[in-house]
Computed example of a mutant assay.
Amino acid sequence: MRVWFITGASRGFGALVTKALLDVGDAVVATARSPQAIVDVVGNHPRLLALRLDVTRAWEAIEAAEMAVLHFGRIDVVFNNAGYGLLGAVEEATAEEIEDLYRTNVFGLLAVIRAVLPHMRARRSGHVLNMSSIGGYFGHQGWGVYCSTKFAVEGLTEALAIELAPLGIKATVIEPGFFRTDFLDGQSLAVSPHLIDDYHATSGAMRGFAADANHNQPGDPARFARALIEMVDNPDPPRRMPFGSDTVRAISAKNAMVDAELAKWRGLALSTDYPAPSTDAA
């Protein structure tokens, strides 16, 4: 039996993964701002510990991690799932909107990592799963600020994987595409009310796409939950794990674009090094 610590577990991926884990026999410390909301969705279960956690409050993360270890004896997997989206052009987003988004998606994730890692290091075992997005690998119009938070999560996870490997702890960044969850609903998505006409064809078009795509996304959340568990079961999990055909296509397109751009500008890129020492005889 593994012990999972999940943030944002009252809905969406967090609730679905919690249910799937209980079904396969694992224990779950499921956290959200309202523990009762978790119980309302998942139900009462002897292997479920529902705790209050607002990830923007670092002290609550420390308390929740301590309570998890006190209750189950350890934390084997932490799934940093809490977060939300912000739709709007980069220029349209206000300073307050940007700061609030980073407070949850980046600083909140870091708070949970810092709270859980001491317990994992003590046991020289564990797996850190950080929720990113298709937007953490490929920037999209209308999602610039949101993508920037997920790019941060990608970089943090890559560094964590290197730092934690000698300690027996793994780290994986999770990159789901568009799944039929409530992500595009008001509870998980903030839409900047500030509109600039010059962005009508780019971020404006994305606003329309998001409204039309809601609950018509190609990804099956239940399949995601099962696939995530299968990945964690593997003794050699990936450093980054995309989920969804749209994410796979976006990664392939991004890699091809980067390769082509590098080939075009390679000469200029290499021209900035100091000249190699001369090997000519004196």
Rank of each mutant, 00 (worst) to 15 (best):
T149D: 04
A115P: 10
L167W: 14
R124G: 03
A190S: 03
T181N: 12
V69G: 01
I75C: 01
R123H: 04
F178N: 00
N80T: 06
T202S: 13
S203F: 10
H71A: 04
V106D: 04
R123M: 07
G142N: 02
M120K: 03
G155C: 09
S188C: 15
L189D: 02
G126F: 03
R74M: 12
T181Q: 14
K150W: 10
A171H: 02
A65E: 02
V153S: 01
L70R: 15
V69T: 07
M67I: 05
A111Y: 10
V191S: 07
L164A: 11
G108W: 04
T94I: 11
V90A: 15
R121Y: 01
L86H: 03
W59Q: 12
A111R: 05
A111Q: 05
D100L: 07
E158H: 00
H200F: 01
Y84W: 14
F183I: 11
L195I: 11
L117T: 14
L167H: 15
H200E: 09
H140F: 05
A95G: 00
W143S: 10
A161K: 04
L70T: 03
H200M: 05
G186T: 10
G108L: 04
D198Q: 01
P118F: 12
T94K: 05
V173R: 01
F72A: 09
F138C: 15
L110G: 11
V78K: 10
V90E: 15
L195W: 13
R103M: 08
V116E: 00
L110H: 12
I196W: 11
V112G: 03
M131S: 08
L195V: 06
G204F: 13
G168H: 09
T104Q: 08
H71K: 06
D198A: 09
L86T: 07
I196T: 06
I134R: 10
A95R: 02
